[in-house]
Amino acid sequence: MSRRTRIAFKASVWVLCLLPLVVLAYRAVTGDLGANPISFVTNWLGQWTFRLLLAALALTPIRILFGISWQVSLRRLVGLFAFAYACLHFCVWIVVDHFFDWHQMGADILKRRYITVGMLALTLLVPLAVTSTNAMLKRLGGMAWRRLHRLVYVVGVLASLHFLWLAKKGRTDQYLYATILTLLLGIRAWDAVRRALRKRRQQQTAGAPGLAEAPH
């Protein structure tokens, strides 16, 4: 892919990721947030946090399944947008929902398990966002950096629990999100196992004298 197309591509990802905020702002300005605007905004931001998180987590499985790899370079950008939406979602909770009622919020973080795991998910995203720059990648070294960024799988699981536990009975979209996450993680797990097996076979064949090395 040429440099020009890559830039055009990055730009459209920016636009797409900002679109939910633009729509939200438009609805706010036109008074179209429904009878319970605070709940509407909280849910809107929570939904988009989760969607962007899933989008970021989908880029590698797409490579595994289809062998296309240019989209993998977008992981960091999409991941950072997910983090930004999570921060906004959290800010609405602090500022608008509880209006700096620290006592109540502290109690909720400890007592409400959906808040506990949401808080954990956001906390775990912080080191990932902080180390997302090229400079940090260099400083940590590729191996350590990759290992650290595997935390995003944990964030995905915590986000699913957050949604499963807060959703009211009778609702079903929380299962859809959890299923998509399971599929995405399943593809990675399957790929990891496959690669580990191949490596072991290679080592075995390499260890056996007189046999040619297995083709890659």
């Binding site: 009878a35 319970n36 605070i38 109540q104 109690a107 007592k111 409400r112 807060l166």
Partner: peptide, 13 residues
């Protein structure tokens, strides 16, 4: 799953 100590009156901040 959640506290019942407070409520949001629809139309209030």
């Amino acid at each position: 799953r959640w506290s019942q100590a407070s409520e949001r009156r629809i139309g209030e901040f």
